[in-house]
């Protein structure tokens, strides 16, 4: 199964994690190509259904990257995201979804190397988990 390449959706905040990705790019720090990154204005705008849709449409993992607490461009969007994602993880675990496939990390705008490190680690984690049961079995 060395050929297995997970599909990963990353929902990242415009002001920090996306900027960190930019910094990683300009610093020539590479990260795995399995990540499909979607830029949002704030993690606070992530509705639970974005995460659900990603999983139900076949994502093996969902990564959410936002600003460190206290640094949110919109004051407290990241804290809202933290609550919602905590609730979603709690919910999904009750239906046989693996909660480890959903990650939330704070990555600041200046943290290019951290971005690279987090992406690499997340892809490794999902690769180790293997293909998602939801992607394979859920037809409803």
């Amino acid at each position: 199964m060395s050929e297995y390449k997970p599909k990963i959706v990353a929902l990242v905040c415009n002001w920090c994690t996306y900027t960190a990705a930019d910094l990683a790019g300009t610093s020539r720090l590479s990260y795995p190509a399995e990540i499909r990154m979607i830029r949002l204005m704030c993690t606070g705008m992530i509705d639970q259904k974005y995460i659900l849709k990603a999983f139900l449409d076949g994502a093996d993992g969902v990564f959410i990257g936002g600003c460190h607490p206290g640094d949110c461009h919109y004051i407290d969007g990241n804290i809202k995201a933290e609550k919602r994602i905590g609730g979603t993880r709690n919910l999904l675990s009750q239906f046989g979804f693996e909660p480890d496939r959903l990650a939330l990390q704070w990555i600041g705008a200046s943290e290019g190397p951290e971005f690279q490190h987090n992406m690499t680690a997340f892809v490794e984690r999902i690769t180790a988990l293997g293909p998602s049961q939801v992607a394979d079995r859920m037809i409803l």
């Binding site: 639970q48 259904k49 659900l52 849709k53 139900l56 449409d57 076949g58 919602r84 609730g87 979603t88 919910l91 999904l92 239906f95 992607a135 394979d136 859920m138 037809i139 409803l140």
Partner: peptide, 20 residues
């Protein structure tokens, strides 16, 4: 994508979204 999808679609999406 999966070889099959139940119709009407998005049933699990609907219930999980409401739950969340």
């Amino acid at each position: 994508r999966r070889g099959a999808v139940k119709m009407p679609t998005d049933t699990s999406m609907f219930h999980l979204t409401r739950l969340s």
